[in-house]
Design a protein around this nucleic acid. Structure first.
Lengths: 337, 337
DNA sequence: CCTGGCACTCTGTGCCTACGAGTGCCAAGT
DNA sequence: ACTTGGCACTCGTAGGCACAGAGTGCCAGG
């Protein structure tokens, strides 16, 4: 049904349309690619491709453009991730290596990705739920108030103010700090909930009220407050692709943390680059955009995800190459620090 | 030269143009406002206003639109900040009061401001240089590495990894922590530089190398790293005002921290609302936008600034009212916490 | 100083035509 | 069975033109 030449035609249509942003006709195809057939033959092939729902023509007597399904087939079977040259990879690595703390790593990553792909880049902070506690700190702030600082092995610092039901003295704070550190240190954040549940036994009865307040804030911070932090860069790149009137909706969607989480979160395989095309993103308002994403991490396991958002008319091979390369080197940097 | 009626005409032109986005003609003016004169009279007035550079016509035989100078005069002499109703103020207050830490306060503030004004909102984090040290914490991370955590009285937490030249033991870290806290606690960040300069005398000689590394990072963090953090929200509101092709440049400018700093930073008076119109912002690419900004703080002194960015064609009285109200209540929340 | 009248200058719109790109289909060739 | 050339058909785009409408500037009169 779809022989090799028809697939080649589809590939050519996608490539031409991506680079010119104009519907591509049969004559232009045979000229620009060295297909050894006549335009009429191509037209027949095109008719079949259109019947399959892989391409459409915007209006009668215009060239064809790929549909979401067409892009999907292109990505799955007709294209390969474009690898980066060694020079490019070295540039990426040195740029990221200049970062001096976690915030800076994430910031540099998202900007780099936006610049490389000329799309909107989104990067999720290394996830709380997959990292481990490295240190817990309690800082007396004022009467009946403590600042709780949680430091993870990914260098992330979480802070919350705790309001205590009763007064405290320095000794009790020190004791509590010691208990927390000895019990939580090195444990995965996912296990913290069950550990904290058993902690009250290890605290003197008269201090339990205050301790309980601290414990509940820890749980809130780590468990209930699932909103992972996500940063965005390169929104101005959206103006290049003419979204006619959808631009507003795209910008609005990109400001919603929840939407970004869903965009990144739905992919199953964490180590490879996944592509969601057009309506495959069931986010309203992003029906005409594609998402290229992957997981990244400091070791073998993925800590979080990053990716790009752009028009469905996108240079997928290059975008996938950039996402993969950036994810790899960001993970490397995180592992080293 | 500019009598009362001419000023009233200017005011009417600004108001009409802001609400309709169409050049306003003499006939429409007398209809919509109750000026007891004929259109011809208005035309004469308009000619004078145009001669003064306060209004222009986009093309011959079109209505007039205000120039930057026209808006300037309007803001300075023809309009009053529009106060918010008590209901609105209560809504603002309760919305902000729900925040549970500094990040959340800032996040809520910027979103609120964007929503109230339907413009792009920018909020600067409470400035380091005007707050005081509340606590310094040193956390052993790995061999020859410490995590330095600085906590300010505005609830802001700064973190940096310190690479030490030599090994350390727990005791030396504890001593250093004690010294730092006793010397820096409660001092303004602006004074920290001079205090730190004298600190080496209070450290044992064999620990000076490590201590010096920590001191230099403190200085870097507080002094050299001037990039104050700024958050932006409501970029999608830019699509409502049609910037024709300048949209890309505006979006690009809004992603540059440095540009945002300049936008907010140039106003002298910190307690009142300042307005920069069009080319008064000497930032390239923001020539057709206006900035309405003010300082906000937890007490009598301003800690940082916040404001909005929008097209010069903006409802200034309402925008100024919103900026003032939000600044006031955000400051109040910060003072309470 | 205000007002009504008048001529003038634009822009925007609708309509028509011509043109060109591109297709679909068919009959003929390999 | 597939490919090819030819041909008619469809539509979107661009240019030309006339026309209406909005708005102005100016002038003479109140």
């Amino acid at each position: 049904m779809l022989d090799d030449r028809k697939l080649a035609v589809l590939r050519a249509i996608v490539e031409d349309f991506v680079s010119t942003n104009e519907p591509v006709g049969s004559k232009a195809l045979v000229d620009r690619h060295n297909l050894d057939v006549s335009p009429a033959t191509i037209r027949n092939d095109m008719a079949v491709l259109e019947e399959q729902g892989l391409i459409v023509q915007p209006h009668t007597s215009a060239g064809r453009i790929p549909t979401d399904r067409g892009y999907r087939l292109f990505v799955d079977r007709l294209s390969a991730v474009k690898p980066f040259s060694t020079a490019e990879r070295r540039a990426i690595e040195t740029f990221l290596a200049g970062a001096y703390d976690l915030d800076d790593v994430v910031m540099r990553t998202v900007r780099l990705l936006a610049q490389l792909t000329r799309q909107v880049a989104i990067v999720q902070y290394p996830s709380l739920s997959r990292s481990a506690v490295r240190h817990v700190e309690l800082v007396p702030l004022a009467n009946r108030k403590l600042l709780l600082v949680l430091i993870t092995n990914t260098g992330r610092v979480e802070q919350r103010v705790v309001e205590l039901p009763g007064d405290y003295d320095d000794q009790s704070v020190t004791r509590l700090r010691t208990v927390l550190n000895s019990c939580l240190d090195g444990h995965k954040l996912t296990d913290v909930a069950s550990i904290v549940a058993e902690l009250p036994d290890r605290v003197e009865p008269r201090e339990r009220a205050n301790a309980a307040a601290v414990f509940s804030v820890i749980l809130e911070t780590l468990v209930e407050r699932h909103e992972e932090k996500i940063v965005v860069a390169g929104a101005s790149n959206l103006t290049a692709a003419d979204f006619s009137q959808g631009l507003r909706e795209v910008l609005e969607a990109l400001e919603e943390q929840v939407v970004l989480m869903r965009l990144l979160g739905e992919s199953d395989d964490e180590s490879s680059v996944t592509v969601k095309i057009g309506a495959e993103n069931d986010v309203l308002g992003l029906r005409s955009t594609s998402v290229v994403a992957t997981g990244y991490g400091s070791g073998d396991r993925a800590l979080a995800k990053l990716g790009i958002v752009g028009p469905t008319r996108m240079d997928y091979p290059t975008a996938m190459g950039a996402v993969r390369a950036v994810a790899r080197y960001t993970g490397k940097i995180l592992a080293e620090s």
